[in-house]
Design a protein around this nucleic acid. Structure first.
Lengths: 259, 259
DNA sequence: AAGTGGTCTAGACCACCAT
DNA sequence: TGGTGGTCTAGACCACTTA
């Protein structure tokens, strides 16, 4: 969809540099759904004119939003509100990779996990879930269990916990029928864009449920990753516990700058 | 130290946008030691003039280098080659945090680890170490074992493996007498700046050596983090295996943008 | 050819720091 | 007070996409 109308001029309340005010204003428009995921924004000169700032200032604001994956620029085409359909986004949040065994192993690069839903239940939040999702203990939640396989072998057990109030009418069928990733579902059906996530990892012995799902012996050391996915305003959207069989795979991360 | 002289004009070979060429040139000067860690660079207008580009273009190049932690800007003072003494850098590479136990727990924020050297030995690289450090199996290496404690309790066993050829004359005494972090030692004494690192984590049972160092039962699930620290040109500098007792602590990471 | 983002420039002014 | 980086502007031109 195309958003043709330019935004109204900035209010005068502005704290800090002008380009930050512009950035906050754009963020506000995206958050409010004025510009929806996938939309083409008005051209830079139109936005700049509408807000009453120079194009250089507008560009600096957009630069930061692009860097934060809120917007995407494509030369010659326009500026878009980021969509969670690209492969790029999948690997932004999926960090499990096969370990290169011997030397002669071909570096197969990143692999798509095959996802299989093995549980979909409604329940009441326990203390930990409530704290993670900023809801009250006892509030209604959805608990979804998935098995992720790489090269045909089960490697990860994901348990997703969602506030039922946020994801109204989310049924197992709707969940299974999603065309793309889970985060794409959140965005497309609930207007929720996952911007970033906090993760904490620890080693622990496999519990019986996980052991069954992954096909390993109970008590085997596995990696448990607790993730809280956040949207605008640091609001928690999803609490996820990933249990990873690290016998042949690693949890991978890169520290500091990529370029 | 102050670097007063402006760089020479850019060669004409330039591929890509001008600001990238400028960035490469500045990077080259830092790499070559022309601007050393801690140095004040010439002012932006002087550099821009020397290179024959506008100040805006120079600033865009510096922007990227600041973002990659190669340079640091301080308003009113100047632009500096980044030093690895700031606390900021410590936590850039130290990602272990106490788990908040119950609700009433005070959020103590990040804690400095207390480091204790428990081993310093010379040896020959095995296949894995050689591959990690881009040297040949059998080449001379240093192996340093440290115990890291948080709030007085041993939590991490670090084994550092370094190519002896890169770190000539590094003795146990010199290592112990370092004034600051290990990465600061690399930079100050060997001119090696660690820019980024790749890490791979997995769960496994504690080996006997680690169990002894951490004071846990052998076989307890622990988190093993394999890190390769890189300097300019993606050159590996250090191979480090951190073994973490995750009974009361987590390995923490943030995905996607921080701002 | 027209419209978009990407680069580059030149200059004015502000905010901060040292002296 | 003078020098530094930080912000903002206005305009020219380039590179890419679409029609």
């Amino acid at each position: 969809m195309k958003s043709r109308t330019a935004p109204a001029p900035l209010a005068e309340d502005g704290a800090g540099p002008l380009y930050r005010q512009v950035k906050r204003e754009l963020l506000r428009l995206v958050e409010a759904g004025r510009y929806a995921p996938g939309d083409t924004l008005p051209s830079e000169s139109v936005i700049a004119g509408g807000l009453g700032v120079s194009i250089g200032t507008l560009r600096k604001a957009v630069d930061e939003l692009v860097h934060e994956h809120v917007l995407v620029r494509r030369q010659g085409k326009g500026t878009f509100v980021a969509l969670h359909t690209d492969d790029r986004f999948l690997f932004h949040f999926f960090h499990v990779e096969a370990r290169e065994e011997a030397e002669g192993e071909p570096p197969r690069g990143r692999e798509y996990p095959q996802v299989e839903c093995v549980g979909f239940a409604r329940g009441r939040a326990d203390d930990i879930e409530a704290q993670a999702l900023h809801i009250r203990a006892g509030d209604a939640v959805l608990r979804i269990d998935n098995r992720l396989s790489l090269a045909g072998r089960p490697v990860v057990h994901d348990r997703l916990v969602l506030a039922a109030q946020t994801f109204r009418n989310l049924t197992e069928k709707r969940f299974l029928d999603r065309p793309s990733t889970v985060y794409n579902l959140y965005q497309r059906d609930y207007g929720i864009t996952v911007l970033r996530a906090r993760e904490r990892a620890r080693a622990c012995p496999a519990g019986s449920a996980t052991a069954r799902i992954l096909g390993v012996a109970p008590g085997l050391p596995v990696l448990e990753v607790h993730r809280i996915a956040l949207t605008f305003g640091e609001k928690p959207v999803e609490y996820r516990v990933s249990t990873i069989n690290t016998a042949g795979h690693d949890y991978v991360s890169v520290l500091a700058k990529q370029h």
